[in-house]
Design a binder for these strands. Sequence first.
DNA 1: CTCCCGATAT
DNA 2: ATATCAGGAG
Length: 220
Amino acid sequence: MAKKETKAELRARVDQVLAALDREYGTEYICYLNHETPWQLLIAVILSAQCTDARVNMVTADLFKKYDSVEKFAKADANELEKDIHSLGFFRMKAKNIISCCQDLMERFGGEVPKTIEELTSLAGVGRKTANVILGNIYNEPSIVVDTHVKRISKKLGFAKSEDPEKIEYELMKILPRDHWILWNIQIITLGRSICFARRPKCGECFLKDLCPSAQKTIS
DNA sequence: CTCCCGATAT
DNA sequence: ATATCAGGAG
């Protein structure tokens, strides 16, 4: 049994992990959900709950042509919207939330996507994860997005211990430098999609294997 | 806590 | 057959 990692050792390992992520994936703020406007990203993220981004993109390609404004979504027929997004799962709830959300955007925010976590999470279908994606990706406001990948991989790396996404958000805020918060989301999702799968992670060929407690266990 | 829910990979 | 997917509401 190895000695328990000290705080100084943990900090050093965090720095090494961040450097390795930057080397491997770069430092560009990319987005896997196709969109041209803030409101399109908001809807795409709502649709992405428990569903891969690739499938969301298949639907939004046509969806954003049919509903080309917030107002169109606000006035959409629920049954018709349900059919339009059926393949993504949770289609009844998502359709209802998107219509309600866009009505709220029209009535309370002049059709614009708000810029604070409180205003964003007051919208139907928008929780902390979705709100933080908007803050980071659209408004360049440092924020931690705790989705399934960030939760799983942050815990494997020993950077978070909680099961609660909001608590993990605060754990990561303490340990990650503020200027790397937005990048963390993007880089970890990229890692989760290509190497660190939920099912059979490819620890043997992971560039973080020497820095990851979970990989050390799996390999040896 | 449960429920929402289809598509895909294994 | 089962686990998983850029979660959120009641």
